[in-house]
């Protein structure tokens, strides 16, 4: 997933007007545009349209009924709880890791960066599995947890942990390249002017990376609310108790209650669209700021 961070601050227009020597004949252009759009329609538009069509197939009443069902509401609530815990924790971690990595030199830094990326490389199913191995009945702390009547696996804490794992790197991955590019001049200037560490962080560093930070939070939130595989392993699928929205979609779907499944899915699809809109807005702002700085430095 780290690939996306590279594109976010580039401006989406060619720098130089193209002339005949560096452009293609019109028919080639139209052919290429046509092919690309067909591919994207097939893989992006059609699935998106299908979600909303299927959701409303049995009419609007059925749609609303599916959403106000107590189990659906419980799933929505749990999804928000998981996100509300996972996002701030990973935000604090991301800022802390980016501060250590970009403002100081130390041995093993590149290993640390690779380790932070690890959760991207791990299958969500395995992310769930490892927590079962630790907190499950037969796990490391299994008997201790049973004795003290603490439930982690097949309960909310497990779901939160799995969510934290799969969204672990997002904020750090956004901030590290950004803060690396900005260097430490401004922080040093703050230091010479008498600012303390916290003052430098709050008044200089964070305002400077606010768009990257927001971008990371948006991605973290989207993934936290939409995670399926990892949460599926640790949830236990207890209706109204340990089901998040994606898991609720699965249950309804497997019960052949397609209209209800797609109704809940359409909420998640809306969330995805809002995420994309916010992301585009943030990218636009970041690019705007960057180009301002670039113009002035010429």
């Amino acid at each position: 997933m780290s690939g996306i961070s590279t594109s976010q601050y580039s401006h989406y227009h060619s720098k130089v007007a193209r002339n005949r020597a560096t452009s293609e004949p019109a028919w080639v252009r139209y052919l290429l545009i046509g092919t690309a759009l067909s591919f994207l329609s097939l893989f992006l538009f059609v699935p998106l349209a299908a979600v909303f069509t299927e959701a409303l197939r049995k009419g609007f009443d059925t749609y609303v009924t599916a959403l106000v069902d107590p189990d659906a509401l419980a799933a929505i609530k749990l999804t928000f709880i998981a996100a509300i815990i996972a996002v701030p924790l990973n935000l604090v971690f991301g800022v802390s890791a980016a501060w250590a990595i970009t403002k100081f030199e130390f041995k093993g830094k590149s290993i640390l960066i690779t380790l932070i990326d690890l959760p991207f490389a791990v299958s969500p199913v395995i992310a769930g599995l490892i927590y079962v191995l630790i907190f499950g009945l037969q796990g490391w702390f299994g008997s201790y947890l049973v004795d003290n009547d603490i439930k982690i696996i097949f309960a909310v804490p497990g779901i939160v942990l799995a969510t934290i794992f799969v969204t672990f790197p997002f904020v750090a991955r956004e901030l590290i390249p950004l803060m690396q590019a900005q260097g430490k001049d401004e922080e040093e200037a703050g230091l010479v002017l008498g600012a303390s560490g916290w003052q430098i962080l709050w008044r200089i560093t964070l305002p400077n990376v606010k768009w990257g930070l927001l971008y990371g939070v948006i991605l973290t939130n989207a993934r936290a609310m939409g995670e399926f595989g990892a949460v599926s392993v640790v949830s236990g699928h207890i209706r109204g108790m340990t089901n998040t929205m994606p898991l609720h979609v699965e249950i309804l779907y497997n019960e052949y209650n397609y209209a209800a499944a797609f109704a809940v899915a359409s909420l998640l699809a809306l969330l995805a669209l809002v995420t994309l809109a916010l992301k585009t807005y943030v990218e636009w702002h970041a690019a705007h700021d960057a180009s301002l700085a670039e113009d002035a430095s010429k």
Binding site: E186, E188, A189, V192, R203, I204, P207, N208, K210
Partner: peptide, 13 residues
């Protein structure tokens, strides 16, 4: 001390 940085390091925000 007052320090003027080579690239000024003004706080851009």
């Amino acid at each position: 001390v007052g320090f003027v940085f080579q690239h000024y390091a003004l706080f851009r925000h």
